[in-house]
Every structure is written in structure tokens, then in C-alpha cells.
Write a protein that binds this DNA or RNA. Sequence first.
RNA 1: GGGCGGUUAGCUCAGUUGGUUAGAGCGACUGGUUUACACCCAGUAGGUCGGCGGUUCGAAUCCGUCACCGCCCACCA
Length: 930
Amino acid sequence: MFDKTYDAASIEPRIRGLWENANAFAAGAGAERGADPFCIVIPPPNVTGSLHMGHALNNTLQDILVRYNRMRGKNVLWQPGTDHAGIATQMVVERQLAAEGNASRRDLGRDAFVERVWQWKAQSGGAIKSQLDRLGASCDWSRERFTMDEGLSDAVLTVFVRLHKQGLIYRDKRLVNWDPALLTAISDLEVESREVKGELAHFRYPLADKTFDPEDPSTFIVVATTRPETMLGDTAVAVHPDDERYQDLVGKHVILPLVGRRIPIVADFYSDPEKGSGAVKITPAHDFNDFDVGKRHDLRLINIFDEEAAVRLAGNGDFLKGVNEAALAEMIDALEGLDRYQARKWINRAMEEGGYLEKIEANVHQVPYGDRSNVAVEPFLTDQWYVNAKRLAEPAIEAVRDGRTQFVPESWAKTYFDWMENIQPWCVSRQLWWGHQIPAWYGPDGTIFVERNEDDARRAAEKHFGGAVEFRERPDALAAWAEPGEGPTVLYRDEDVLDTWFSSALWPFSTLGWPQRTPELRQYYPTSVLSTGFDIIFFWVARMMMMGLHLLNQEPFRTVYIHALVRDEKGAKMSKSKGNVVDPLDLMDEFGADALRFTLAALAAQGRDVKIAKARVQGYRNFATKLWNATRFAALNECRIDPSFDPAAAQSTLSRWVLTEAAHAEADVSKAIEAYRFNDAAAAIYRFTWNTFCDWYLELAKPVLIGPDGPEKTELRATTAAVIDMILKTLHPFMPFLTEELWEITAQNAEHTRETLLIHARWPDGGLTDESAAAEINFVVDLIATVRSVRAETNVPAALEADIVVVGANDLHRTWLERHDAAIKRLARAADIIADDIAPANSAQAVVHDVVVCLPLVGLVDLDAERARLAKETTRLERDLAKIDGRLSNSNFLEKADADTIAEQRRKREETAARLDKLRAAIDRLEPAA
RNA sequence: GGGCGGUUAGCUCAGUUGGUUAGAGCGACUGGUUUACACCCAGUAGGUCGGCGGUUCGAAUCCGUCACCGCCCACCA
């Protein structure tokens, strides 16, 4: 039954089976009647994704909270599920198609492609669940949801239609961040700016009323740009209204080189006299700031790109208007269809040939990139759907301000506020196929019908048009509109889908059944805690807050716990390209799920990065083995659970001491978990288990446990079993597999049936507190530790058993020495322990509490080493004493420090002085050095 | 440009309202096959808590400043 080592690989699956058979993770399982609810919704991983270290950390922490609260008797639901992850998943499948040499998604067609994605979901969607299982995450899988399942899709439709009717979702034509590789709009958050080494081109724009002469600066105005190719769409040059250099040029015009377009010079505050030449070209259709400038000056918008950001001039009415088409033929010929970067080169060359290029400088600047596609994003003028985030943000800000929702650590609230207070309209439409298709139907007169389904849209449209309507695909509908004939009015549905984060924003209530009024919704909403990384505070947390408050009028969670990011052991962000990714599955294979979990908890200090080091995981695997062996030792010595054992009635100080320490440890762990100080919690149970229970309690109890039967042995056996029980419970949230296994084994050993699995056992609460037992055991522990240290430092052979003479022992000391005689002899390697009034000559000596312990080993003790040791100790004590005396003689200290602190210093002074006296006496007893 | 965080033992990190002899794991060194455990036991060494200045009776802890590192946000002149 009990091997020497805990074999995680074989035990974990069996324990998982136990939990599964018992339906142990089900909502409310093991709860007390009428118990308070405790609910966490899992941050839904990508349905086709796999477990990475960030998931491992986050889900370990959530599971600790969940298991702890479950053991506290609460009605716990950990709601799991997965996200369809629009762009990410679509990209994966597109890549697969490409790799298989298949047709692109466009060739395949929308329906076939979406079908293909569902297949991929069916095929790979189970991986993340089984990996979370592997980790021990105790989610209620019977309630697993998917953002595109029927219920959640219904929630999405409901919200879209409702917000639209409330005017909070609207369609707008404005510049968006356009991803020319993915061919979709993306939101501000999906754009990351990267530093790029580029060029700054200085162009000469000839003044309309002068004859251009490259040598004469009065005939042109210089503009600088990092995007020469966009000059094709320039419709103005802006200078600062206060810029004296350009005062008399405002209102005049320049002729756009190559193109020949006559464009105005306008005065606008956007222009920064400090930058470049102080004059800036304005391209309202391809730059967010220029767009605003264009609005202020009523400038034309000229889009020169197609959706792949390739130049489109031929037949481009906006571009061609007002220029001499014939003169442009050659240029159009050269540029048509070139991508941005090729066009840039061509423009630079052509400008140089025409004498319009003043210079090109190297320039480092920030360029926005699509976080998925890794290509530069293009500001692009399109119609998209927007959510009025500003309105929704107000109650969401309020909820955090007044503490209904609390960030832990608190500092993240600032980040949340900063973003929420400057929030921009949220572009929620995506030109993708994988996702929730937007429920909007377009009629030929420009009317948009936003309804939950086609039937509702039909009814609304029939009412609007006063006759029958018919739905067709967009191209067919547009064709029908172009040539109106007899018959029903033709409508088409918006082809776009919603941003993935739109459905994620509903997660805390959609998974509980909303918009249905389910009992789960009533019971578990608002949820208790949301645990996530800071990287998705904006993407997700903020949006859940907005949606939850708007739709349910209640904040979605009481606490938002923000954990650190997992990095490699050097602190670098893990990335595939760096090759420094640590796979949690590998670590679990090597050291077990419990060891990984414990490591993550132990490293999860707040506000820090979590740097995962393999040695650390190994160390905690060793900890698992340590507990395993301690329990094995207890079993070997027939330490069985005794249902009649009452800790409060325990007789031996050893029992009372360890039971008290156990209660302290439990209190520390509880307090730390409740404060989300997972590292403190892990440290507390680790320290107690290893350093207190194994290193001292078991060692001190050994002589009794392996000795003759008697009342003390009976009691220590029961104590040992009881303390192990307490360890198993307290450790369970961190190491669920090991502890559940030992829970079962210890029950078998006792031929005692456990009422429940450990996962449903009640958290230990309180217990014995006997601070006086500590004095006795601490004396014994310190005595043993001191003797060991002295022996090692004075080079006493390890195997030698030496007498210990204790000088200055009072009756109490004598009782203690008597009572723990066997343990001290065993642990301090003593032949005999003698209480005496006179110290033997030339022995090694040390002060322990109020007594002096002597090792009378003439010839065996290295006296020089002993003298050095005592001298060192004396020096240290003298220094301490001087420090304390300094404080106590400082009148300021005595006046201003609080009474407790002063009393403490006085106590310390006495203690140190007494110790020093004993030490000096000990030195005097030694033969002076030769 | 704005904001946030970090700098503590060789390495990775704790250190909760200012008062400890500044701790842990790993690593190093010394010694151990004592019948739970070598994934172990006992012991030892190792830190002017990034620099400077200040507040305070007292600072790793509070304030200022500088240096370096990291992250987030921000108009691609």
C-alpha cells in the first residue's frame, strides 16, 4: 500500500476518478443546507487552445479559493466554459487549410468554412478541459458552456438588440483600425504600437501662385512624413495658427506634386511648430488626427487604398476628381495595385526626380500593428457597429469607486479608472466568419432592422415597407436593388460577426442562464471573485463590469483578483519565438500536478511577476514526498484516527504543543487565503508540516511511539493521526491529489470509514490553544539545537555519544529534562543528561534560556574552536546590548515610543544581559589559551 | 510624452500598517546508511536591503531625488 515515494502519475488519475464518480465538483456539492453561495466564473480559455503556464497559475489560484470555500461548507459553483476566440480560431483553421493545400476560406465559401471550424472545435475542443482536469481544477463540468452555444448566442442577440433599441449600439462611418492582412476592423485594444526604424521624408509642396523652383524656398512649403505614399490622398497642408513663419500662407494653396491636385493651406492647432518643418500634410482618409483636422476644415476624404492596403487609383472617383487624368496615366499605371511599402518607394523616387524631395532622414517611430496578424494596421474609412462605451462606463466606474467591486491588489483600480474615464467607442463588428453574426438586416432604402431573428426582422420590415419582404445574400440583394422590379422587397443580413469580447462581456451572467431567470442566476450572481491577469483588465474585466451593471443592474463580481504574469526564471515574458516557454504539462509529468500547483501558489505574491523555476517545482515535489513519508511513518506506528480523541483533553505537553501549533498554522492559512495571499498560505502550511511536525514533533514523539505501550503512547498516536488529518485538510486546496489519496489511506489504516471525500470534508476550525506547553517544548527544542550546533562547531565526532551537563536547572527544568530524556538523548546524541550545579572543567558550553549546557569532553572538544565560538557569541551579545542600552538611555525614545515597545526593549535587555553573564562565566571556566 | 511597478544572500523570491538577530527555496561548504523519508537528516558560510538626501527616538519599510530594469497607455511630421 505504502511505497517509499508518492507516485503522482499513477495516483492522480485514480483520484480524479473518485471525484468524478462522486460528482464532487457539482454546484453546491458537499455544501451545508442554506449555505452562503460562492461562485467563480472561469476566464474562458480558447476552445481550441491548450493549457499554458498562465492558465495553470490562474486556475490553480481559483481552485484554491474554490476548494477552500467548499470545505468551509459554502454552496460553491465554479462555472467553466470556453471561448470561441473569433480571430484566433479562424486564423488557425485558415492556416490548416493552407497547410493542407486546400482552397482559401473565400474559395470554400462561408457556410463550408464555418462548418470546418466547428469540426476543428469538435476535434480539439476537449483538450483544454482534460488539461484543466489534469491540474485538478474542480469546475462543475456538467455546466460547461461555450460562447457560441445556443444559450449564450441567445444572450448575445438579446443584448445586441436591446442596446441597439436603447441607442447604445449604433452604426457609424468613421476611421477604424483596419487589419489589411485579416481584412477586418479591429478595436483599439487589439492594436499594439511597435517601435519601427523608418524614414522621415521631407517633401516640397509647390505654392499654387508661384513657379516652383527647388532652389527657391519661397516657392514651396516643406512637409515631413513617414508615410510618403499617403500623399496621394492629401487634401490640405496644416500649419499652426500662431506659427509666424507661415502666417501669410494660410488660406493659400499648394499644388500636390505628381497628382496636380490644388489643396489649401489651413491653420489648425493640431500642427506642431516644433515637429518637422512645422507644416504637416493632411490625409483625412488615412490618419486619425488628419481625419479630425479634415472635419474641422471641411476637407475632402480621399481613400487611395483598397482593403488590402494596396493602391487603388484607377476608377477611384474621389482621387481623380479635380486632377488631370491624362497626365496621371503613367503614374497610375506604375502604382496601381502596389502595396503600401512598394508605393512608398515609388513615390519617393518620383518626388526626387521632380525635385520635390528635400531629404530623407532615418527616423524611429511608433507604428500600430495588429496584435494577431503582426502587420501594420491601416486607418480605414468604413461603416462599422459601435458600442457607446462612454455611457456604459459611468456605472462601471461608480461600482469600483464605491467599493461594490474591489480590486485586489487595490492598485489596479487606478489602471481601470484611467482607461474607463477615457474610453472610446467600442468597434464591435468584425469582417470575419467565425463568431456571432450581427442580427441586422438592410433594406434598399437604407433602413436597418436590428432584431433577434429573421422572423422578427421580417415583421418589422413588412410593417416598414407595407408589403412582403424577401431575404437574400448580400450580393444578390445589391443586384436586386440595382434593378428594382416587381415582387417583394429584398433585404440582406449584415455579413459581419461580433468581436469575441462582446460575448465574453456577458460571461458572468450568460453562463448562469441569462436572459432566462434561472435559479442559478438568482443564487450565484453577483459572483464572488474574478481571478485574472492584468493584461485583460480592459479587454474583459471592464466590459463585464459595463454589461453586467447595465443589463442586470448589479456588478458582476465582488472582488477582482489580479494575479501576476508568469515569466521564465530570468523574468522574460514567455513566447514561442524566444523558445523559453515552460509547458505546465511537462512539469506535471515530471513532478506531479500537486507540486506544480504548490509552486504557483507559493510564487503568487501580489503585484509581482511569477517566475517559474524548475528547481522550485522539484522542491515542492519533495515536500509532497515528505508528507507522504510522514504519514507512512504514522501508519507504521499505528497512529490511527481515534474518533473519541479530544484534543482539548490531551495530557502530554508534546501533544498539547503540536495541537496548538497546528491550530496556529490553520489560522494562518485561512487568513492568508482570505486575503488572497496565496504565497503566505503556502508558506504557513509548508513550514508547519515540515519544520514543526516532521522535524520536531515526530522526532520528539518517536521514543514514545516506538516504545512500550502505555497511556502516553496511546495519546501520541491519536495526536499524530489528528494532526495529519489537519494537515491533509489545510493542504488540500494546494495539493488536492496527494491529500485525497492520504485521506483514503489513513482511513483504511484506521479501519475507519470517512464520512466524505476530503474534498467535501470540513475545514478544521480552531482547536486546542495551550501557550504554556510551548515553554516546555521550546526549551527542549532549543536545548537540542544548541547541543547539535556546539558539537558541530567544536568538531565533536558525529557518532560519539557525549554526556550533557545542565547547569543552573531549576525544578521545572529538571522535570522537563526528565520527561524528554529519551528524546533529548536521541536527538542530541547524548549518553546521559545530568543536572548539576557545577560546570565540568574544559567542556564546551552554551547558554540555553536560563541554563548553561556543558559538553564535558576533555580531549574531544576542540578548545580553540570553543573559545572562538564563545568569543564570537559574546561579541554579538555585547553589540546587541549596546544597541538596546542606547535606545533605553535615549530620553526621546522613552518619551515617544509606545509603552509596549519600551517594555519589550527592557525585557530584551534583561534577557541579553543574563545571557551575557552566563557566557562570560563560561569563558572564565575554560582554560586560558596556551 | 503620460502612468505603473521593480532594484533585499551566488540564483529565484518573501518581508501586511516603521521597533526582527532581515527570512525561505535552490545552490555552496562540513558532517551523517539513528529501523518515515538521500525527493532525507544535522550543521555552517553568505546581505553597508540600488546610490544620495530627508522625516523620525528609531527606516529594507515613509518622503524626495538620481541611476538602471520591466510593463501599460499615447497623434506613424
